[in-house]
Design a protein around this nucleic acid. Structure first.
Lengths: 342, 342
DNA sequence: TTGAAAGCGCTACCAA
DNA sequence: TTGGTAGCGCTTTCAA
């Protein structure tokens, strides 16, 4: 069995309290002389004493661990920089403050119910939340701080939320394309994100931007693409086809690039493509991908730090943190061919 | 304060034991009638009873959590598929068995000492281990199972270890290049991995493969590149320059591709490049990257499952699990230009 | 079929 | 300057 604080105390001829004080600085009133302290440290070392973190956490009601919750936790994409950037931000903040980071299974089913108040975490970072009633209730009843990533400002429970300015991002993308001479600009996303808060926010941003640029909307301007891959082909063979597509994510944008290649549509000559989440990855595609940027790592870093502040009793007012989007122009966008413009 | 098992017991007019039995099946000797059980469940529900996992873990000495240790935990690469594949394997195994997964700070400094026996984890997955004496001692003294990833077979502590067949991988790469007509093949890696077990294994594999193919070794055949970027330029402007480079990782291979582009060296015409870790990412580079493959996700999945088996008392014999490498030929390798062959 | 008691390892609180 | 006591929430063990 592992050496306990009592073993050390006994061997050093002192009380358990003295050991706790010397090794962990606990026990505000307790004072220990320099010699005694030295003995305690020596004995602890000799016995290979290892403080039991579980017992300490239990006693102190403080685990120094943050839980990471994804509303849908499938696979991590190998093909985009999003998760890496996100995790880099989260890890750098948690590790700076010497917290641990735990990723839990089954968070979907539980709607985080089982995780919010089970004592394991000092706080929860919730990424891409859904807004089921059940979740909202759990969150309201939470005894630990919660912070949300990619949660639009004006819905859901009242916790700090971090989000990029989707409207701005889409506006920049549409304006860039319009400047190049595009008149028919489509938006492509996967079926899943149709029900996501972020998905809806981006569709809305797209429609607003298109309207503000006085472009005509057209049939199938928002394409849900992952179910039926032939849709893209159908769309592109129409007489009046879009000359540019804005795509929900890097990953999906790459799929579009490949699909276009397979269909003999050359990017950017026959079709301009804009992605979302401009990471280093966009420089590796061919052609290099023009993309809307959001400062993912910074957002994750800030969100985690706000969470930690809240945990440590410096509450930030529960409010929304909105980050501006940018547009990184690379090679996948260009003037449309005249022939296509009709 | 949170509802405890005693609150429930009191409200239901039974003992705490009865509640524990009904809600968690604990207490082998305890029996509870169907009606009483129903009452208990109802009351627990009404009071929003949430079992305290910390207390349970503490009592049972079982946390249902696995610790993830990296010998050097800097940033996750956004530009390669390695980490995503690794984490996908680990997560899918942990979550299937309903374990949690914790990533800890400061693992470098502590050499995992502080983490091995502090009660937080049921087992440890150690990735890319170094072999300091300190680490070895900690591991020997560990009271929980440990499994190692990317640990060569015949060195370090006696725990299950998972590794790819680096010799085979390098052999395949060299043979492929020799078949294409290459005579001078270099190996490129970063300074850090020089001291890594895996780094040394790959250098050794490279040298063996080159020798077996009866190629002459040459000055600077193993290039440590990240410190001094001009080295590549120097090497490529030599009269007798390598016509092909095998690179330690995807990420570094991409850097080489870019550097070559910047220097006006065209790949694969003037220089063939082979990477290590063939993930989907290699299809997105330009030119698409020929790469040595190892089944990262499968290895991570298997390693995690072996760890869980060990935790749950079905020890696998502590032995090495070696996975074969393959070679995925894409576009970054070709016959060398005659002019270069001299 | 049920309950009481004891204690996991540690630290807040109170007493000396 | 030091130590004892009690108890965090739960479950193991023993008694009824």
């Amino acid at each position: 069995m592992a050496t306990t604080i009592r073993d050390v105390a006994e061997a050093a001829g002192v009380s358990a309290m003295a050991v706790s004080k010397v090794l962990h600085g606990k026990g505000a009133n307790v004072r220990v002389g320099a010699e005694t302290a030295e003995t305690i440290r020596r004995v602890a070392n000799e016995l290979h004493y290892q403080p039991n973190r579980l017992a300490r956490s239990f006693r102190q009601q403080k685990t120094h661990t943050i839980g990471l919750v994804f509303s849908h936790f499938g696979r991590i994409g190998e093909l985009d920089g999003y998760f890496a950037a996100f995790l880099n931000g989260v890890m750098s903040a948690t590790f700076q403050s010497e917290y641990g980071l735990t990723i839990c299974p089954k968070l979907v089913k539980l709607s985080a119910n089982g995780v919010i108040n089970d004592g394991r975490f000092d706080g929860l970072l919730w990424c891409k939340p859904d807004y089921s009633v059940q979740s909202a209730e759990s969150i309201e009843r939470s005894e630990i701080p919660i912070v949300m990533m990619h949660a639009p400002a004006n819905q859901g429970p009242n916790v700090p939320r971090f989000c990029c300015d989707n409207d701005l991002g889409l506006k920049l993308a549409v304006e860039h394309l319009v400047e190049l001479g595009h008149k028919r600009i489509g938006f492509v996303m996967d079926e899943f994100n149709r029900s996501t808060a972020e998905g809806r926010a981006r569709i809305a941003g797209y429609r607003t931007a298109v309207a503000e640029s006085h472009l005509e909307s057209f049939d199938g301007d928002v394409l849900f693409w992952d179910i039926d891959r032939s849709k893209l082909d159908q769309m592109m063979t129409k007489e009046q086809r879009p000359t540019a597509l804005i795509v929900f994510s890097e990953r999906q944008a790459v799929s579009i690039l490949r699909e276009a290649e397979a269909l003999g549509i050359s990017v950017p000559e026959d079709l301009s493509v804009v992605g979302f989440d401009s990471t280093a990855f966009c420089d590796t595609t061919r052609p290099r991908l023009t993309a809307i940027s959001q400062p993912i790592e910074q957002m994750a870093y800030d969100a985690t730090n706000v969470l930690i502040s809240n945990i440590e009793g410096n509450p930030s007012p529960s409010r929304s943190f909105i980050y501006p989007c940018g547009l990184d122009i690379r090679e996948s966008t260009a003037r449309p061919r005249i022939s296509v413009l009709r």
